[in-house]
Design a protein around this nucleic acid. Structure first.
Lengths: 138, 138
DNA sequence: ATAGACCCTGTAGTCGCTACAGGGTCAAGT
DNA sequence: ACTTGACCCTGTAGCGACTACAGGGTCTAT
């Protein structure tokens, strides 16, 4: 199949497929006399693997490592598991960061009185380092 | 104060400060005869505001908008609140994505038997589109 | 013969920094 | 007076993972 069909089947953009080839996560396919790329089932499976890894948040570098394990024959479960567990830790760290953001943002927005007044406690809270100021203390 | 001191006081790198100036979230400071940048309190407060916004996940574009509201006098609470609420929605969407990732990753890693065997159900699950295969059905 | 859909390469843009290279300035010490 | 070292300057290129062209070639149908 040509690149357009592969793109359609995998939900990936044509440019992305060419990009993946360039950075070495997809092998170079056969070319026709017209210089078009022609792909087979193996390419489709591999691209889908890459997409799934990406959806799980793995970096292309990690994907390359996973593919290397597969191709190199050394796809020992233990190695893969270690990589995956490391990745889960990163995801959890990001989750923790985002949760903090969300709660802080929630606090700040809760202060909004919603009016059209020219002062805004949201902005003030971000400007002043110490939460209570002179005017507040009075 | 010079850029190095400002950097130290705000926990921001020198290059980042110059970058913020270039992209228009920090105003150009006065220059000395030596062409050094010299900053005052207002700069420090503004930079700190930018940093806090960034820590809350606002993009530099959103920060520019917030600063525009402040400077333009139209810092009506309602506008700011709308921007902030929109941002919270983005954060929540990212949180939902990451939670899905985490749970999916957890499921996949749970299948790992931890051994050093050359087959790995983690990888197989990512390769095969349909969760149950011939071998599994038997 | 031509229109339109597809394909090709190569390059530049995105975001938010970060990291140089290659130079200037300034204060302290010798 | 000279040197050392810390600081400052500009300008450019790099990161990751794409995305978006420009400027061309190819194929199929009419």
């Amino acid at each position: 199949m040509r690149i357009g069909e592969l793109a359609e089947q995998t939900g990936c953009q044509v440019e992305t497929i060419r990009y993946y080839e360039r950075v070495g996560v997809l092998p170079e396919p056969q070319r026709g006399q017209n210089n078009y790329r022609y792909y087979g089932e193996l390419h489709r499976r591999r691209l889908q693997f890459v997409r799934r890894c990406r959806d799980l948040g793995f970096s292309l570098d990690e994907v390359r490592t996973l593919l290397g394990m597969i191709d190199g024959g050394s796809k020992s479960c233990a190695e893969v598991e270690a990589l995956a567990r490391g990745h889960i830790e990163e995801v959890r760290a990001k989750l923790a960061d985002l949760r903090k953001m969300e709660s802080r943002l929630g606090d700040l927005v809760a202060r909004c009185h919603g009016g059209n007044t020219p002062d805004c406690s949201f902005l003030e809270a971000l400007f002043d380092s110490q939460p209570r100021r002179q005017t507040t203390q009075q």
